[in-house]
Design a protein around this nucleic acid. Sequence first.
DNA 1: TCCATAATCATCCAGTGGGTTGATTATGTC
DNA 2: GACATAATCAACCCACTGGATGATTATGGA
Lengths: 219, 219
Amino acid sequence: MSYRGGVADTPAQPRRPRRSPGAGERQRDPERTKARILDAAKAEFGAKGFAAARISDIADRAGVNKQLISYYFGGKEGLYTELADRWRETSAAMARPEAPLDAVVAGFVMSTVHDWDWARLMAWVNMSGSAEQTPASEAEAQFMRAQVTELKNRQAAGEIPADLDPGCLLLALFAAASATVTLPRIAELISGADPQSATFTSRYAEQLALLVRHLQHPA
Amino acid sequence: MSYRGGVADTPAQPRRPRRSPGAGERQRDPERTKARILDAAKAEFGAKGFAAARISDIADRAGVNKQLISYYFGGKEGLYTELADRWRETSAAMARPEAPLDAVVAGFVMSTVHDWDWARLMAWVNMSGSAEQTPASEAEAQFMRAQVTELKNRQAAGEIPADLDPGCLLLALFAAASATVTLPRIAELISGADPQSATFTSRYAEQLALLVRHLQHPA
DNA sequence: TCCATAATCATCCAGTGGGTTGATTATGTC
DNA sequence: GACATAATCAACCCACTGGATGATTATGGA
């Protein structure tokens, strides 16, 4: 038995066997091609992680010659960092300032439904990234600090128990909200349902929100 | 720049250049050798995950010829499953029945200090394992179910709010307790400290325990 | 002491996978 | 229409990696 990368690949596009020009459709369209490669890469990297992902698989999924990955992104590593960078930007932009905390957490959980691959990619980046390796962009640190002060404000406003350290709380909430993605097997074992499914995810999101509310207003 | 596996390798043994017989020490000792290989594998797999780990690195770290990995464990995959199996047994045995919940959670967090590699391995297994791939041993499922009923009991005893689903709560606690291992980069960003360090880990453990207590007794 | 066998090693082998090369075909412009 | 250039592809290359082979040495028993 050869090792197959983790978690079933996302069904994804029906994977047309060969792209036929299609009336009115350009047959050379660098933007489209790049987008396709990025999508495919997101799916593959998300499913298997960097090391286990194969650029030929990515190319196949994108319906494109694998050389284009070098051509556009400078190889596997370039493609990966491109995606990682985009994720950082996205997550930095994701800072929703003044929603209730339980809603923020639940929303984060739910976001994994719409973009499972993206969430998985985040998880891989976090799991395998160390400080020396990828120096954690200043923007990223900024974002985290902002989130911490966010929590601190909520704490000052009495939304959160005063004796909890905002940093640790943030970390815990982050981890809990990522649970379906980072611990899919346990999630499945516990719930009996597919951790990717909307039904389970929304239930879990709701429960987490409830938990947060319990922290806020005494039970 | 070639991709280096995630998270700095554990310092580990000083990696003796060549094992010299050493007075009174057997120079052929299969048990010792196997143990060394397992330790090295745990460290390598833990640091980089299955796909990125190299059996030659494992062999080097163990100070042993790489062929012995095939000899004793039937290759890379066999070695990995061996470790994964051991982890499952260990974690199944880890079921401490009647400690207070906050202590259980804190203890789980603290366990990552003494055996970081092991915790990382767990994280990789969970992250990359899907149901089809490794059918989640019955024992494993049993263990999880047991934990859930454990929580249910605590809930019945009024330790936990009645409206929380025990399964979801377990998942959330599990994820939160694994945070330093599964999200080391975020942990580092938030705390400014090394997520592997005992100081940070114990602080985080304490905070999580506090959080659990807040769930139990209204703030 | 000698032998059978287990343990260990150095070396080789073949498959894989990422990357490169050079050719080919669109596309836009003059 | 012709040309320059961008986009795309098929084929090849070679480093790496996991595993296999066969030799060698220790160990324990007869």
